[in-house]
Design a protein around this nucleic acid. Structure first.
Length: 363
DNA sequence: AACCCGTGGCC
DNA sequence: TGGCCAAGGGT
C-alpha cells in the first residue's frame, strides 16, 4: 500500500522512498539521451576538473546556448588553469564581454591564481575546499566534486529545484522550500555515479521537466511524480512575488576624434565592474536630458531614440549624444581614445555595444 | 535575508 | 510586447 510520509515523500510498498528507486531509472535514461556538450567527457571517461570548473562558472545563470562559443574560445586560449592564471585579467574581461555577470570573470582569474599558488596547480577534490575558492558557491562546489572527482555531493541547481518541487508536489515557492528541497535531494542522490546523476538531473530539467510545457509523457520519472499525477506540472513551481523593476535614466557620450572614440573603464566592483564604457552621467530617476554630464565641451548631437536595456533589477534608458573633436584633443582624466575599429576587442558589455550600434545606425 | 549582478531567447 | 527564465555567488 502507498502512503505519504511526514515530509510528503511518496513511499512504495516496501517503505523505500521512491527517490532512491528513481536514480537507476534516471541514469538509464541519461545513458540513452545525454546531451553532447563541449565540456563533457565521453561516457565512462573522467572529466578534467579545469574544464568542469570553467564550464560551471560560465553556466551560472546562463544558458547552454550562450556558453558554448565562449567555452570553446577560453579553452583554446587557456587550455589549463596555469595558463589562465598567467593571463592578464583585462584579457579575460575582454573575452568574457557579452556573457554578463562580470564579477564571474574577475573571480575566475582570482580562482585560477589561487589554485596555482595555493594548491599546486590542481583543483582540490573536496566540496569544502572547492567552496572556499572565489566564485565557487554551494552549487558549483557540489557539481565539481561530483562531476570531476566522483564524490557523492548533493547538487542543487534551478533544474533540481524544479524537478523536486514537481515530483513531490511542493506548493510553496522555491525560496521558502529550500530546506525541504535539500532534504529530498539528499535522499534521492545515489552513492554510485554521482557526476552522471547530477548531470542527468540537469538534462532532465533542461529537456523534459522544463519550466513551461514539461514533456511528462516521455519523462523517465513520471511514475511517482505528484505534479504529474495531480495535473499540476504546469503550475509548479509556484512563483514568488517579484519586485518591480524601476526605470533609471542617464546620458552617454559617443565622442569621436577622427577614427577614434572616447572610452573609460568602470570601477572594478559593482555593475559592469571593470568593463569598458562610453562616458556618461550617473543613472538615476532624473537622468541628463540636456547632456550636461559631457566629459568634453563640444557641440553634441542627440540621437533621435534612446538606447534601452534591461538589467536584472532595473530598466535603463540612455540618451545618446554624439560629437566630433579636433585631432589633437586630449582625453579627459580617466578616459582614453581607442580606434573605433578596435571596439570589438574591448571589454565592451552588451549595453555599450547597443550604444555603438545606435550611433552607427543614426549618427 | 534580501539585494545586487547581464544577457538573449522564448512565447 | 513584456515578463519570464537560464548549471548562482557575493555581500
Amino acid at each position: 500500500m502507498t502512503r505519504k510520509s511526514s515530509t510528503g515523500a511518496e513511499t512504495s510498498k516496501t517503505g523505500v522512498p521512491r527517490e532512491i528507486a528513481a536514480a537507476p531509472r534516471l541514469l538509464e535514461w541519461y545513458d540513452r539521451h545525454r546531451r553532447a556538450l563541449p565540456w563533457r567527457a565521453p561516457p565512462g571517461e573522467s572529466a578534467d576538473p579545469y574544464a568542469v570548473w570553467l564550464s560551471e562558472i560560465m553556466l551560472q545563470q546562463t544558458t547552454v546556448a550562450a556558453v558554448k562559443a565562449y567555452y570553446v574560445t577560453f579553452l583554446a586560449l587557456w587550455p589549463d588553469v596555469a595558463a589562465l592564471a598567467a593571463a592578464p585579467v583585462d584579457e579575460i574581461m575582454k573575452r568574457w564581454a557579452g556573457l554578463g555577470y562580470y564579477s564571474r570573470a574577475r573571480n575566475l582569474h582570482a580562482c585560477a591564481q589561487t589554485v596555482v599558488a595555493g594548491h599546486g596547480g590542481r583543483f582540490p577534490g573536496t566540496e569544502a575546499a572547492l567552496r572556499a575558492l572565489p566564485g565557487i558557491g554551494p552549487y558549483t562546489a557540489a557539481a565539481i566534486a561530483a562531476i570531476a572527482f566522483d564524490q557523492r555531493a548533493v547538487v542543487i541547481d534551478g533544474n533540481v529545484d524544479r524537478v523536486i518541487v514537481r515530483r513531490h508536489g511542493i506548493e510553496q515557492p522555491i525560496a521558502l522550500a529550500k530546506p525541504e528541497i535539500r532534504r529530498l535531494a539528499d535522499a534521492a542522490t545515489p552513492a554510485g555515479r554521482p557526476g552522471d546523476y547530477a548531470q542527468a538531473m540537469m538534462d532532465l530539467g533542461a529537456t523534459i521537466c522544463t519550466p513551461r510545457k514539461p514533456a511528462c509523457v516521455i519523462c523517465p520519472l513520471a511514475e511517482g511524480c505528484v505534479a504529474r499525477i495531480s495535473g499540476r506540472q504546469e503550475v509548479l513551481p509556484v512563483k514568488g512575488v517579484k519586485a518591480a523593476r524601476p526605470l533609471r535614466l542617464g546620458s552617454v557620450f559617443y565622442i569621436r576624434r577622427g577614427t577614434e572614440v572616447l572610452v573609460r573603464t568602470r570601477p572594478p566592483k559593482g555593475l559592469l565592474g571593470g568593463m569598458t564604457e562610453f562616458p556618461g552621467s550617473a543613472w538615476d530617476a532624473v537622468g541628463d536630458p540636456e547632456g550636461k554630464a559631457a566629459p568634453l565641451a563640444a557641440i553634441h548631437r542627440r540621437l533621435p531614440a534612446p538606447v534601452e536595456h534591461g538589467f536584472t533589477h532595473f530598466e535603463l534608458r540612455l540618451t545618446v549624444f554624439v560629437a566630433d573633436m579636433p585631432r589633437k584633443t586630449p582625453a579627459p582624466d580617466g578616459c582614453r581614445w581607442v580606434p573605433e575599429e578596435g571596439l570589438d576587442g574591448e571589454a565592451l558589455p552588451g549595453l555599450m555595444r547597443k550604444v555603438a550600434a545606435a550611433v552607427n545606425l543614426f549618427g
